[in-house]
Each structure stands twice: as C-alpha cells, then as structure tokens.
Nucleic acid binder design. Structure first.
Length: 478
DNA sequence: ATGTCC
C-alpha cells in the first residue's frame, strides 16, 4: 500500500520513503485519484524518484497512468552534472505531439462538406500501423529531415515560415545528430514521413464551442463557431526504433556507471556520459522527424480542404496556432531554491506550458503565454490552454497532455465487443473513420478519463489557464 | 505507441 497524502484539493504527496531521493507529487482530484489511478502509476512515480540526480520531486499530471517504465503524465528534472537521462521516461513515440490549425471557416461552412473532407483526408493521409506515405526518401534526405525537422519540410514546399514560428523549438531541435540514429530506424522511417500512424493518433475537424479568455483567444486567432483541425502524431517507426535501440544499450551500460535499476524498463545513463549524450542527440533527431511529419500532414490537410472547397487554402487562412511536443527530454533553465539551474526536463505525456514573458516563446505569444494544445477523446472536448508562472514554479513549466487512459487497450476492446463505436459516435453527430473497428474500440471515449475533470484540475492547481474549448465534428483514426 | 514476436 502506497501512502498518498492530500496537500490540497488538486495536489497530493507521496512522502519520501526508503530509496526515494525526492518525494512524489500528483496533481489530481480526490475523485479521479480514487476512480482512475491504479496502484501501478504511483509505483512508477516512486521508481522515477529513485533515479540519480532527480531534482526536487517526481511529478505526475492528472492524466497520469501506467506506462512503459515510467508513468505517462510524468515529469521529472535532472541535474546537468549528476543526473541521468532515461528513454523509458520519454516514451517510445519520441516527440509525439499535437498541433492545432485554425481557419476562417465556420461550422456552417463545413456542414455539408464534412463527409467529403473526412473521406479525402483518409485518402490523402496514410494511416494505420505500418502505413507508408507518398514520400519515399533516400537515406541522405532522411538525414536532412532528422537534422532539420519541420524546416526541411517547409524548405521542400510543405508549409510556410509562419508554421515554423508557431512550433516548439521552431520545428527544429539544434542538438540533433543524424549519425546517432541507427540503420534500422532509418529503414523504418524511409516511407513513413507524412503518415498518421495508429493507436491514439488522429486528425480531427473541430468546432470552437467556448471561449474563456477573449483577449488570449483573439491573439491565438480563435473565435466561437470556428473550424479548427487538430493533428496528433509522432515519429512513427523511426522514433520507436531509436527508443528501443538506446533502451537496450542503457540496460547494458547502466551498471558500469554504478546505477542500480529498480526496473529494467527505466534503464538510464548519466546525461554527461558518452551513451547519455548520444541518446540525447538521437532523441532530438527523431523529434525533428516528428516535427517534419506533422508539418507535412499539415500541408496535406490544407490541400485537402482546398480541393473540397475549390479555393486556395490561403483564402481559408489555415494557419498554425501552435505545435507542442508531449514526449521529450529538454535542456531548460529553471529556478531551484532561488538559483538558476540547467536541467534535463523529462516530459512523458506532459506538455510544456511556459508563461508570458518567457524568452523561448514566439514574439506573438510573449504577452499571453504559450498556447497549450490538449486533445480529449473522439467523443469529447479538446482545449486550448495557456502556460502560467505557477507551472514554472511548481512543475518545471509543465501541464497535462490529454485525458489519459483509464482502461487498458485490451480491456477497451473487450468492452467494445458487439458494439459499433463509429455508429455510437455518429448517433452523437460525430463522423469517425478508422482503419479498424478494433482500433476505434481501443480509443472509445469511456476508455479515457473525463477531459473536463482533467482540465479543471490543471486550472485549479494553477498550472494552466483555459482559453477555449473545441468539440469534435469528424475524425480519422489510424 | 509499434513492420502489435528477430
């Protein structure tokens, strides 16, 4: 039995016990804690707290759930000298992330076009496990993609300079090394650029249903009744392979650095070690691939809208609001006990949420704070939030990343037997097109926590502010 | 999440 003590309505403490270097903190409500968090997630929060060089606390967001090695919804910062880096605390889908594309279309404009849009998106953007895209790149070009990220995509005609401006890291992480990515990863990545993938990855056409902060919404280009398009995808087989390769490697070398692993899935190496630095550069290379992937899909989405409406997409003002990554480790400066420190911040199923004034934000968001894009499920709302100063102080500038699973995929498939999830969604006015019925069942809304409750918690805890809520109209699923 | 088992 793990003891979890209430700090306040939205914040809970796992006190430091034998072997823990720092305490655990879970941002959650009593209701969600009892209903949606199994014992396995707190065990992983504790395992993370035992890693060398972890600073202050092992954190979990309200969408926390059990994952490979470390919890999804977990955040932890590590000292730049004594800390470690752990692939299992970044996730297999390196730079899995979300972007939101705005438009000047209203729900009325798309009412009679939704079916065409969703069918053509499904045709134009390959999805599903192992799906391959229209682009087949030579190894040399692929290396440019891992070095240059979304910048490569824009350079090759898939998007605009404005897209880069509105992407975390401008869509290109500088400290990336194409040579740190293995052959097998490149083989898998060759034909997958511009593909959606499977699982919880999706492209969704949404309607803006609520505005909570008009000033911020205005500066984000968001208005009531507006059509937005949300993309959730990552680095596909390339990132998966990078994660796997370095997990193997770290599993073998951790002992050489005197690290005793409490869970092999949480294999790690010192950030300052040869292996640690190499993983960091490979991870960033895979992250760049993911930025390019979402960028190329953005272009395909714009073309799809153009062809359905018969007007150039520029006329529909389909610009990028923001692109966030929620599976990554970043070098960031944070204040620790009154002093500025350089930290390796791991976010696994957690979103950066920097406050207004932060120097890393694009000029246009300097006075509002960073847009935080949070998807719900196929059947529920999604949100635009904004980063806060309190997140900077308490969670290394982090917030939740989505609703967070409540049921295992296996359990969801079982629940979905003799049901048509697409049919049920259609009954609620949501057009869902998936590669497989099983895939849709795995992603049924009931398999997830209530996104509205999750958002209430991050807002109540002061980790982000609500800007707008979108509802799903139509979605494609891998 | 994932060429859902090299």
């Amino acid at each position: 039995m793990i003891s979890i003590e209430k700090i306040n309505d939205f914040k809970w403490l796992i006190p430091r016990m034998e072997g823990m270097r720092v305490p655990g903190i879970i941002y959650i409500s009593e209701k969600l804690l009892n209903k949606a968090v199994s014992e396995k997630a707190p065990e992983q929060i504790i395992n993370v707290s035992k890693l060398p060089g972890i600073v202050k606390y092992s954190l979990a967001m309200p969408d926390v759930h059990w994952g490979y090695g470390a919890p999804i919804g977990g955040v932890g910062a590590f000292d730049a000298e004594s800390g470690v880096i752990a692939p299992g605390f970044v996730g297999y889908d390196l730079n899995c992330g979300v972007r939101l594309i705005r438009s000047n279309l209203t729900a009325d404009d798309v009412k009679n076009k939704l079916e065409d849009l969703i069918n053509l998106l499904f045709t134009n953007i390959p999805c599903g496990v192992g799906s391959t895209g229209a682009l087949k790149l030579k190894r040399k070009d692929l290396e440019k993609v891992t070095a240059e990220g979304a910048e490569w995509a824009v350079k090759n005609g898939f998007g605009t300079a404005g897209d880069l401006e509105n992407t975390e890291e401008n869509g290109r992480i500088k400290e990336a090394d194409p040579d740190a990515v293995g052959n097998r990863a490149y083989e898998r990545g060759t034909s997958q650029l511009g593909t959606l993938g499977s699982g919880n990855h999706f492209i969704e056409i949404q309607r803006v249903a609520d505005i909570y902060d008009k000033t911020a919404a205005d500066s984000f280009g968001i208005f009531p009744g507006q059509i937005t398009v949300m993309v959730h995808s990552g680095s596909r087989g390339l990132g998966y392979q990078v994660c796997g390769d370095y997990l193997d490697r770290f599993g073998r070398v951790a002992a050489d650095y005197g690290i005793k692993l409490s869970d092999r899935q949480l294999a790690c190496a010192p950030v300052s070690s040869k292996e640690g630095r190499r993983y960091f550069r490979a991870m960033n290379a895979a992250a760049n691939y993911a930025f390019a992937n979402r960028q190329i899909m953005t272009h395909l989405i714009r073309e799809t809208f153009s062809s359905v409406f018969g007007v150039p997409y520029e006329k529909m003002q389909m610009s990028l609001v923001y692109d966030v990554t929620h599976n990554i480790c970043k070098i960031e400066k944070h204040t620790v006990d009154g002093r500025e420190k350089t930290l390796y911040v791991h976010r696994k199923g957690a979103t950066r949420a920097f406050p207004k004034g932060h120097p890393q934000l694009p000029e246009r968001y300097r006075s509002t704070g960073q847009p935080v894009i949070i998807p719900g499920t196929m059947g529920t709302s999604s949100y635009i939030l904004v980063g806060t100063e309190k997140a900077m102080e308490e969670t290394w500038g982090s917030t939740c990343h989505g609703a967070g699973r409540m049921m295992s995929r296996h359990q969801a498939v079982k629940e979905g037997r003799n049901r048509s999830i697409a049919g049920e969604l259609a009954g609620r006015g949501i057009l869902a097109k998936g590669v497989s019925g099983k895939g849709l069942a795995e992603e049924m809304p009931e398999a997830y926590k209530d996104i509205d409750e999750v958002i209430e918690i991050v807002e109540g805890a002061g980790l982000s502010g609500k800007i707008a809520r979108m509802v799903p109209l139509a979605v494609i699923k891998g």
